[in-house]
Amino acid sequence: MLAYTMRRLLVAIPTMLVIITVAFFMMRFAPGSPFDSERALSPEIREQLNRFYGFDKPIFQQFVDYLVGLGHLQLGPSLIYKDQSVSEIIASGFPVSLSIGLCALVLATCVGVPMGLFAALKQNSAPDYSIMALAMVGICVPSLVVGPILSLVFGVYLGWLPTAGLNLGKMTFETLLLPVVTLSLAQIAIISRLVRSSTVEILRSNFVRTARAKGLSEFQVLSKHALRAALLPLVSYLGPACAALITGSVVVETVFQLPGIGKNFVTSALQRDYPVVMAVVILYAGLIIFLNLMADLAYGLLDPKVKYE
């Protein structure tokens, strides 16, 4: 287990390096520069700016400098927001994105798992069909449609919830409710379908038949034997789910005008704010790698058939 973890972490280092390299050179070879603005800068000022930020050095030298900076945990200054460092921008945006993502994940699991289980237990009955139809709706109705409609209905027509933004920069239940619901709908659907199909398969397997044959109550069969095996695919899905939530949060933050990191990323990329873009890519790549590792380890702990050596 420990050796496996170490090996995975060792693999993560070159992975991160590849990601950093690709992102760095892609951004740098992009046409345009962070100093393009409505007002053209005089060549002298532009030159000074370039020298100040080290953009006059050869590109490879800049890359090495950036890596060295990263090694010292320095993400550099933002090129657009002159009074903020990248760390400050991340520190202000990340908690918003993280709480939306985490809440959505928890909500999706708490709603999706019971729905899937229920559908599987009532397989091929009316409740099963209606739950699966609902799940299909959840998959087919994209968040960019759900978001605006929810904010129109609950924000504008009913006036129950704020339509956009955070109240004085504070996250409250009301401001987060619609974004979280929007983000979690698709995941609820996917999770319930996943749980249903794995449960259906497990309920047909031999060890469940054995458990029933030795006279256990249906509740015991489910809770002691079937559930654990049926939820395994869910564990390995949680890694990709997090990645999907991160992607989705970019849209949700745009729809609801939340000052999260995803929205930051798009504006930064458009403005060529290299350090911010790099930092976000590194942060999310690290997060995804970490979460995938966690999911795999959890899988190993839960599934007696899997042994990591």
Partner: peptide
């Protein structure tokens, strides 16, 4: 292993960068 590595990429960000970079 290459596929695994690519799986770990926050792809949407790379697609966004691509769109921004190449128009």
């Amino acid at each position: 292993r290459i596929v695994d590595v690519l799986y770990a990429l926050p792809f949407i960000f790379f697609v966004i960068i691509l769109m921004v970079v190449f128009g």
